[in-house]
């Protein structure tokens, strides 16, 4: 997993509620056996028209948001299927941070496993960010995981909560299995008892 300490990037707004993982990466693209190659299919059904031409109505296709790496979006983002292909697709598309008022559990876990930082803000803060991202050209945010804070270079700043264990893993780019295997003895002990 790639380390994440601090990131500054262009913000894209996706003002929808309950965006489920079927939308983030539709099922026809789940057949690959690799972890890569999903980015070009992210949001496929919204992003492309029938004939595979980019849908000009879809906000992420707006050239203004080309190269965005921070997504601000509505509540309950990532609900539905547990497919980790969703964070893989978002990450390959270029998103490093996703900001919302709430996330679905499994999706958030999956993001943690892939070094994507999911930031939960209050609805008031979200409204402000959503408006800024839509109105201010080339709107950027800096997100710092170490200090659990984010800000633009105008007047917005906020702090967010983050699981200390997950924070440590993401800051250092560690994978869980290595850390768990430090408890090998306890696992074996549990197995011999049960």
């Amino acid at each position: 997993m790639e380390k994440f300490i601090e990131h500054t990037g262009l913000v894209a707004p996706l003002d929808r509620v309950n965006v489920d993982t079927d939308q983030i990466i539709p099922k026809q693209f789940l057949k690959r056996i690799e972890r890569t190659g999903f980015g070009k299919f992210a949001f496929y059904d919204w992003r492309y028209l029938e004939d595979g031409v980019p849908n000009p109505e879809f906000i992420l296709n707006d050239p203004k948001f080309n190269g965005a790496s921070i997504l601000v979006t509505g509540p309950n983002f990532g609900s539905g299927s547990s497919r980790e292909h969703a964070p893989w697709a978002l990450s390959e598309y270029g998103f490093k941070v996703i900001i919302s008022t709430s996330f679905a559990d499994i999706f958030r876990n999956n993001c943690m496993q892939n070094g994507i930082v999911t930031v939960v803000l209050s609805s008031k803060e979200m409204d402000k960010l959503m408006t800024n991202a839509m109105r201010i050209p080339n709107y950027k945010l800096s997100v710092n995981l170490e200090t659990q804070s984010l800000s633009d270079n105008l007047d917005f700043s906020a702090e967010f909560e983050f699981d200390p264990f997950r924070k440590d893993s993401i800051l250092k780019g560690l994978d869980d299995i290595g850390i768990t295997l430090q408890h090998e003895e306890e696992i074996s002990k549990y197995e011999s008892k049960n």
Binding site: N109, N110, D176, L181, I187
Partner: peptide, 20 residues
């Protein structure tokens, strides 16, 4: 409960899962 693919790997390797 359902888990993601990284967690599938974690269970395959350790027969455990990290959960709050």
């Amino acid at each position: 409960f359902g888990i993601g693919t990284s967690e599938v790997e974690h269970v395959l390797a350790t027969q455990t899962l990290r959960q709050r």
